[in-house]
Design a protein around this nucleic acid. Structure first.
Lengths: 234, 234
DNA sequence: CCAAAAGTGTTGGTAATACACCCATGG
DNA sequence: CCATGGGTGTATTACCAACACTTTTGG
C-alpha cells in the first residue's frame, strides 16, 4: 500500500488473474488454517493466504495445485474451487481478480520444512490474525462452504489420517460446526452409514484404554451415494 | 495477491476475464433458460449463454448485472456467483477465464422486445440445444447449485410473480427437482413455515374453481432464519 | 485404586410419508 | 352436469434428541 509500483498506471490497464489457496488441516482437536507471513513490501509482516498468478498456459485448478505443491509438498489432495473475488479495488496494486480454492489436507503428510521455508504457520481457525486484502472474507466463505458440504458428504475424512478413531472424527465435526455432539448419537448415525471399516488396532495416544482405529470405505460410500442417501451429521 | 507480476504478463498475450450469465425463469410449469443465438463468427448460429468481458474498472458482480440489464432490462434481481471456468483451452480465441453467475428472474417482468433484439430465446431446461464452449457444464452446475440451495432457502420465490398460488409454487419445485410431490404434504410443510400471506384474491387462470393467491413474507422468513430453521422441501 | 476417556441402549417426541375424497366452477 | 384442478385429514413409520452408566488401563 505504502509502496505502489512505479508503473501503477500501466499495471491497472491490465486484468490479472490470481488464485489463492485456503488450506485446512486438523490437529489436536482443532481446525487449522495455513497462513503466510509476507516478507516483501507491500504489507510486510502481515498474514495472508498463499497464492500465485495464474499462468497463461495453465488451467485454473492446475494453478492452485501448483501452489499447494510448492508450499506443502502435497499432491492429490482434496481441493475445490470456492469462488472468485473481483472487487475492482480489492488489491491496491493491480486490477486483479482472485479465484479462491480450498484444500483439505492430512497434517501428518505435509512437508513441514517446506512450509517453514515459506514463512508459513498453522493457525487455529478460532484465533486467526488479521489477513490482508479480502482474505478474511475468503476464509469465512470457505468455512461456510465446508459446513454446508459436510452435511451431505463425508469430506471430514480428507482431514484425518488414513486410520482414525471415532472420537477423533467426532472432534473434527465438533470443530467444523463449533458445537458439541452427543457421542452415542454420533456413533450410532455414523455406524448406520456403513462406510467405516473397523480395524484390529487401537490408538492409545488419547486415553489409557485406547480407541479402536477405523478406515473409510470409499466403495460403500459410492454405493450409498447412488442409492440417494444423504449424510447430515450435525 | 500483490506480489510482483511476472514479466510474461507484460509481454505476452493477455489473460481475459469474462462473465457469463445463466438466466433462469419459470413459466407454464417449466423451468426456462435464456439462451442466445450467435450472429457473428466464429460459431455462428450456435446457442450460448450471454456474457461479456469484465471491464477494468468494474466489480465482477457489477459486470454480470450490466449484462443482465442490457439483455433483459432487469435490475435488482436475485443473482449469485456460481464459479469460474478456466481451462486453458476452453475458448479457442483467447486465453480467457469466465466467471459464471446465475440469475433468477420473474418472466413477467422482463423486457421481451429487448430479449428478441439480442437474438435470445427461452428454452425449457429439459430440452436444451447444444451450447458452445463449456456453457453446458455451467448450466448443469447452476442447476445443481439451485437444487442444493432450494433445500434450505426459499429461492423459489424469486422465480414467481409477487402473487402466486400454492399449485404454482409446487410446480416450480417439481420442475427444480424433476420429481412429483404430494400436494397435501407440500402444502402442510409450507404452511408450517409461516412465510406465506394468504390474499383475498384468486387466480382463475389455472382452473375453474380458482386458487388463492399468496405472497411471500420476508420478515417472517428472516425471523425463521435466525431461529435456525431449515427449509428442506423435497 | 482412581482418573480419564471409550463405549454402549432405550425412550418419547417430532416429522416424513402414504394415501382418497369432496369442493367449486366454467363451459 | 360434468370435467378440471383446488383443497383437506389421518394413520403409520422412521428418525432425531435426550439421557447415564460401565469398561479399560496407565500411572
Amino acid at each position: 500500500m505504502s509502496q505502489s509500483p512505479p508503473d501503477l498506471y500501466q499495471v491497472k490497464e491490465k486484468m490479472y488473474v490470481a488464485t489463492d489457496c485456503i488450506i485446512f488441516g486438523f490437529d489436536a482437536g482443532r481446525l487449522k488454517l495455513l497462513l503466510f507471513k509476507r516478507e516483501l513490501a507491500p504489507l510486510v509482516g502481515e498474514w495472508s493466504l498463499i497464492g500465485s498468478f495464474v499462468r497463461l498456459d495453465e488451467d485454473l485448478d492446475i494453478a492452485a495445485k501448483r501452489v499447494l505443491k510448492n508450499t506443502t509438498g502435497l499432491e492429490n489432495v482434496y481441493m475445490e474451487q470456492l469462488k472468485s473475488y473481483g472487487k475492482k479495488d480489492r488489491d491496491p496494486g493491480y486490477r486483479c481478480i482472485s479465484v479462491a480454492q480450498f484444500a483439505l489436507i492430512r497434517l501428518e503428510d505435509h512437508d513441514e520444512k517446506l512450509v517453514e521455508e515459506h514463512g508459513a504457520h498453522w493457525h487455529d481457525i478460532m484465533k486467526l490474525p488479521h489477513l490482508i486484502l479480502d482474505h478474511q472474507e475468503m476464509v469465512q466463505d470457505a468455512l461456510e462452504r465446508i459446513r454446508q458440504k459436510a452435511r451431505f458428504q463425508p469430506i471430514g475424512f480428507e482431514l484425518l489420517p488414513e486410520k482414525f478413531t471415532i472420537p477423533q472424527l467426532q472432534m473434527l465435526y465438533e470443530a467444523i460446526y463449533q458445537k458439541e455432539l452427543d457421542s452415542r448419537n454420533f456413533r450410532k448415525k455414523l455406524m448406520a452409514l456403513n462406510v467405516l471399516v473397523k480395524l484390529d488396532e487401537k490408538d492409545k495416544s488419547g486415553s489409557k484404554r485406547g480407541a479402536f482405529l477405523y478406515k473409510f470405505n470409499n466403495g460403500n460410500y459410492q454405493k450409498l451415494l447412488k442409492s440417494g442417501y444423504n449424510f447430515e451429521i450435525a
